[in-house]
Design a protein around this nucleic acid. Structure first.
Lengths: 207, 207
DNA sequence: CACTATCGGAAAGTATTGGTTTCCATATGA
DNA sequence: TCATATGGAAACCAATACTTTCCGATAGTG
């Protein structure tokens, strides 16, 4: 365990904590007070840290998604767990109807169920936008929807590329959780680039 | 204040707390123990709740960005505050160099400074991805970068559409903070749609 | 075989965060 | 007049993510 801790760069106390919380499976006991941890434990540990630190999941949320990887549910169910875990649940009743209509309009032609957590969460965001008095005159929402479609398609290709069910499930989880963070990060870079293109001098920046 | 509380649907105690934390400017005092709050306070209150609840900012982060709206710094500086507030700061030294190279490759031709917080954060995400053993064979990263470019361009158009500096600054902040949440939400919906298109039956879902 | 160091595990402690409650001396309004 | 409401300070609180302390047992070292 000390070895696992030093290889992963995570304090022993924290590993014990994850073990206790059921995030990390116990090592193989070689004696009443000795256990062996292998490559899988290391991978899992890195996954957990990624979900928690980079993906900003709470302990409970992280447990839910790693459980989904381990259980042998299908891909669709794994997606559902992932989506419900990362989306804050929005109560449809206290949702601005105008916002919901705008979101639905931006998703025209999409096959999306009424209680898709993303649809509801998007309406919540647009509702906030409207409440502050930002009207969305230039089709901001619609263009974001188009970008989302691109990303979702990339996600599915990435999942399809993995060899077996467990690897695919892991990609569903990791892609859903870390994809948010990745896109957010790339958007910041793209903002700088776009700003520089529009307003900057020719000599600004470098590829 | 009771009125402000009931209109905004936020407990008085919470409003007092925001006042104390410097998130909300004090009302105009009409007597030693009476103050008037106007439309601006209501708007600001809604903005704060949006940043905190929907955008998941902490109190300190929210204060920093509303301060940026109120101060009369330029648009570029506002962007900087927004970006630095929403991106977790990544130490460039403990960053996987291979990951950084992949990110730079995906951003070929972009005018982005070396210490752009998005560039570093993206490298962190990709580093996590690699550490878990997910190789990105299908250009996932590059396709996300393309989507991010679309979003960033929509962001700039939205900002340009606003009438004055303060409104633009507000859109910079709101767009940066809530844009992350919006895209994440739309991606979930798009995932369901794309999944249904690829694997679903013809009768699945409805536009 | 002695004996120190380390093991895994339980339980209690801690720092931070985002409020909430309580208290207070005014001041308003029926 | 006198219960009620006000703004403001300070103490309190629940949740979260660890961290520390303690434990009895066992592994490794000489």
């Amino acid at each position: 365990m000390a070895q696992l801790s030093s290889v992963a760069g995570i304090p022993i106390g924290t590993i014990k904590f994850y073990l206790r919380e059921g995030l990390l499976p116990a090592g193989e006991r070689t004696s009443p007070n000795q256990a062996d941890y292998d490559e899988r434990h290391l991978r899992r540990l890195r996954l957990i840290r990624g979900l928690i630190e980079v993906g900003r999941l709470s302990i409970v949320e992280a447990r839910r998604v790693v459980d989904a990887i381990d259980s042998d549910i299908g891909l669709a169910e794994t997606f559902e767990v992932a989506q419900h875990t990362v989306s804050e649940q929005v109560d449809a009743v206290d949702l601005d109807r105008g916002a919901l209509d705008l979101v639905d309009a931006a998703m025209t032609g999409w096959r999306v169920s009424e209680d898709n957590p993303g649809r509801l969460a998007a309406a919540r965001v647009i509702g906030t936008f409207l409440a502050i008095g930002q009207p969305d005159e230039r089709g901001w929402l619609a263009r974001y929807a188009e970008a989302a479609l691109l990303a979702a398609d990339a996600d599915l290709d990435e999942i399809e590329s993995r060899p077996d069910r467990e690897a695919q499930a892991e990609t569903v989880i990791v892609g859903t959780v870390l994809g948010d963070a990745l896109f957010a990060a790339l958007r910041r870079a793209a903002q700088e680039h776009a700003t520089s293109l529009r307003y900057g001098t020719e000599s600004d920046g470098a590829g």
